[in-house]
């Protein structure tokens, strides 16, 4: 499971203290909210480009794991990027909003992560470069208790790591 440590190292080295002290990737390394990440968003080979310009996450409807047309668009570009930047691997994190029981949401997050993984594999990304993990409702990005926040929390985030998956 070295890739996790490598993710943290990789981002941590460049992002200084932008991440929380949680030692597991929780999606907060990703772009979109002004996080300072590796490289420049205008450099198409940089993780910052992947995270911010393409977008590292896709969103889901309530209790669903079906990819929306918007999600398909983002994931198509993610697949292209991953095919062109083969030194990166990724862990796809599935998340749910807080409207649901803890264990069901873990299973739902697993479905969401898997939907993204399957899409990327279908588009040609080598399966051994992709892993999935579900956080269920344990790692919300937004903390209010209404749909504005919930819609952003129902997500799957493709978290890049440098190097091959070793586990």
């Amino acid at each position: 499971m070295k890739h996790i440590a490598m993710t943290a190292l990789f981002v941590g080295a460049l992002a200084v203290s932008a991440c929380s002290n949680d030692r597991f990737g929780n999606g907060r390394f990703g772009g979109g909210s002004g996080d300072f990440v590796a490289g420049s968003p205008s450099d198409p080979r940089s993780p910052a480009y992947f995270n911010q310009t393409i977008g590292d996450r896709v969103l889901f409807a309530v209790d669903q794991s079906t990819l929306s047309p918007e999600a398909v668009q983002v994931l198509t570009q993610q697949a292209t990027w991953l095919m062109e930047n083969t030194s990166y691997t990724a862990v796809i994190e599935g998340h749910a909003d807080e409207q649901g029981t803890r264990e069901y949401n873990l299973a739902l997050g697993a479905r969401r992560a898997s939907a993204v993984q399957n899409f990327l594999i279908d588009r040609g990304v080598a399966p051994n470069r992709l892993q999935t993990v579900s956080y269920g409702k344990e790692r919300p990005l937004e903390i209010c208790s209404d749909e504005l926040c919930y819609s952003k929390n129902r997500r799957a985030v493709t978290v890049l790591a440098a190097g091959a998956i070793t586990s």
């Binding site: 873990l106 299973a107 697993a110 479905r111 898997s114 939907a115 399957n118 999935t132």
Partner: peptide
Amino acid sequence: YSLSAGGNT
């Protein structure tokens, strides 16, 4: 227990 593999639990 539950085991999730390939998105199925």
